[in-house]
Design a protein around this nucleic acid. Structure first.
Lengths: 271, 271
DNA sequence: GCGCCGAAAATTGGCGCCAATCGATTGAAT
DNA sequence: ATTCAATCGATTGGCGCCAATTTTCGGCGC
């Protein structure tokens, strides 16, 4: 656990914060063993970035919705510059798009790009499955079994929890592969494919068919590399099959999303 | 007819004009053709980003060098906020690292991460070679032959030109694959591996053995997929073999301040 | 009634200033 | 003489204000 002392720097800016950090404690006790003194700034820990990311992964923010700076700043309780940095960071990651003088919007991939994302996922995750089988040890087996049990015990009562649970399976496979670079790529690709799915999904279809996960997990545990790769590839193709082009329309979703939350007060106008 | 549409020169209630810095001149004509309507902001086109990137790819900026905001702003002729946005963007791409209240530095990957980058490149570029062979057409053959001729005609008089030429081979293969997502990943991975090579290279070794490129190109032209993948994998392993750990020190100019704090001074603490 | 043209309001972009923090130098005490 | 500690200088971080541009709204003409 790397406890950064600048963790909640963004949220509690103007707050009094009299708890502990108000006084100048420049005397550094020597009980910081060896870990830090380097505290690289990770935008993933930013609360604004994290909030937008979770909102996207939970489909509360649909592709195409405008992300106004001032509105987000008020909603998240921060200032505008932090929202701006977060939006710039997400724009670098192709999660949002920024138009000059027009603002930032949740990224809406094209149909071709969605296809390419899935093709890239097939490449990456086939490699991660293979590497995970290669370096599978006792601890890895335990983690995989634990996750499979957790996924089997899911009753799908909470849709968001189930969604992140199925996503965690792919992440776990990539973690077991032991390659952080490939892990980051898999993470990024999963985020972007979730945007692609949200853009081109057909209503009523589940995002990720969870039935394939036990099979893939069993094949990984059995160290059957070729079959595991084939199962993972087939699984990803199965997810891809659930989206359809429908290129034309659906640029009014932000209004519907807003009015879905605010529409209750409008409905009873003439009570 | 409507030529002076967006003039609005009469500003009655604005503050007394203090405008003295008119450095940025808008070349925007008065007529507004509907060419843009969407003009997504691309940080890659930013001159600061481009400058730092080319400086890194040409090894004029070594890993670990400090990128001071004010210094860069003066060096590149811009203001500090542009440099700041560019550094944040490059930090998102893992090209630079930012430490809180300490500044930004050219990213120096660890030895393990360097190995992982090469492993990821083997995965990605094997896939791009395979896809390039699959969808190779007349135009692709022409492009590949043209590049091979260009690389064969290189006399290595200009080291930077040769360097970008050998890099363009891998980029061309990824372009021929037709997957923009994989292309971006290959580009990013090549940038970061150039940082890894710059960090761990042995003096006197060339970066990329260009002798393998004609073989790979010939195998692609012959549509021998398995052999091409093997050749590409072997080629990347060959590049990886030219770097060595040399974990300990770093003798770069301005980063002594960092490594004094990062590696040496923290380790010694009398109990 | 419909469409076009103008201005006001809202939002983004950019810059300067000030505070906060870190590194280095200098001073004093053991 | 060495080491610890406090001050000084330099750099980054953040915020408010203002300019530029887009969007929206009201007005006018057809």
């Amino acid at each position: 656990m790397t406890t950064t002392r600048a963790k909640a720097r963004n949220v509690a800016r103007t707050a009094p914060a009299r708890s502990q950090a108000r006084t100048k404690l420049r005397r550094r006790p020597v009980e910081k063993p060896e870990t830090d003194a380097l505290d690289p700034r990770r935008m993933d820990d930013d609360p604004v970035v994290r909030g937008i990311l979770t909102a996207i992964s939970q489909k509360r923010l649909k592709p195409g919705t405008k992300l106004g700076e001032d509105r987000l700043a008020r909603a998240l309780g921060t200032t505008r510059i932090h929202v701006r940095q977060a939006l710039a960071h997400l724009a670098s990651r192709k999660i949002v798009v920024q138009f000059p003088n027009r603002g930032a919007f949740v990224y809406r991939p094209t149909w071709e790009e969605a296809r390419e994302m899935f093709a890239a996922r097939r490449v990456i995750e086939a490699a991660t499955v293979a590497a995970a089988i290669d370096r599978l040890d006792k601890q890895g087996k335990a983690l995989l079994k634990a996750h499979m049990a957790r996924e089997a015990a899911d009753d799908r009562s909470d849709r968001w929890a189930s969604l992140s649970l199925t996503a965690d399976f792919h992440i776990l496979i990539a973690e077991l592969a032991g390659n952080h670079v490939l892990l980051d790529m898999a993470r990024e690709l999963m985020l972007r494919t979730s945007l692609a799915i949200a853009t081109f999904e057909q209503p009523g279809e589940p995002d990720c068919s969870p039935d394939s996960h036990p099979d893939i997990g069993a094949l990984v545990l059995a160290r059957d590399k070729a079959a595991a790769i084939a199962a993972m590839t087939h699984h990803l193709a199965d997810i891809e099959r659930r989206i359809q082009p429908r290129d034309g329309e659906a640029q009014v979703d932000e209004l519907t999303a807003i009015f879905k939350d605010l529409g209750v007060a409008v409905a009873r106008h003439d009570g």
